[in-house]
């Protein structure tokens, strides 16, 4: 049972949640790890929330229960918060500090949640929270690769950087490949910076 890993990915339509999921799936296939996913993206093209659940290991079928996610990869802060119920004491959250305000907030009928408070709330309760403060030098559409790069530096992440790079190479069209790999690499370096700063 311990060899199972469950990864939740959250974002908004157009941010590349499905693409990121595809890459993780591809990497798992390369590493010969059993993999399954479950996705809800009915109205994603129309600016709605998109989430994907990925489960790695035997006897698991793509579904994540409450307090079941070992990793939460958040591409947008509100959507990251929306996955709070999936977290547990040993979860690792990698969240991009990126906000896309829903139109209810734009229209002034709702408040965008206080993200600093959210991080404060999480920090003592789970194993690790990495909020990516600033991403520079890459296109917004590749921020998902940056997040994956950061996640891949966490010790317990089930997929190695080499395998992920191979998956990217298999999966991404040539004209975009270099930029994608670069974004992933930047994410990996970002994490070393963090660890260095702490130590």
């Amino acid at each position: 049972m311990n060899n199972k890993t469950k990864i939740q990915v959250a974002g908004v339509g157009g941010q590349g949640v499905v693409f990121l999921t595809n890459l993780i799936v591809e990497a798992a296939l390369i590493a010969d790890i059993p993999v399954a996913t479950s996705e809800i993206h009915g109205l994603s093209q129309r600016g709605g929330s998109v989430t994907a659940s990925i489960t790695l290991g035997e006897n698991t079928y793509g579904f994540i229960e409450n307090a079941g996610a070992d990793f939460l990869l958040g591409l947008e802060l509100l959507e990251t918060q929306r996955c709070l119920n999936y977290l547990h004491k040993n979860s690792v959250v990698v969240a991009d500090n990126f906000k896309i305000t829903p139109f209810l907030v734009n229209a002034g009928t709702a408040q965008y949640p206080d993200t600093a408070a959210f991080v404060e709330l999480l920090q003592p309760q789970i194993k690790q929270v990495i909020v990516i403060e600033k991403i520079t030098g890459i296109k917004n559409i590749l921020r998902n690769m940056f997040v994956l790069g950061v996640a891949s530096q966490v010790n317990s992440f089930p997929l190695s950087a080499a395998v992920i790079c191979k998956a990217i190479t298999n999966h991404v069209a040539d004209y975009n490949l270099e930029a994608t790999l670069e974004a992933f690499e930047l994410g990996r370096n970002y994490c070393t910076q963090i660890t260095n700063r702490k130590s």
């Binding site: 908004v12 109205l43 129309r46 600016g47 709605g48 929330s49 229960e65 409450n66 307090a67 079941g68 509100l78 959507e79 918060q81 929306r82 709070l84 119920n85 977290l87 547990h88 004491k89 040993n90 829903p102 139109f103 209810l104 907030v105 709702a110 408040q111 965008y112 949640p113 959210f118 709330l121 999480l122 309760q125 789970i126």
Partner: peptide, 23 residues
């Protein structure tokens, strides 16, 4: 499920603004 969940998660979730589909 033996995992320890986040305290008060339900209440926090309740207050988050929805992101309904739009044209």
């Amino acid at each position: 499920n033996k995992n320890v969940s986040i305290k008060n998660a339900e209440n926090i979730l309740k207050d988050l603004p929805q992101r309904p589909p739009t044209l």
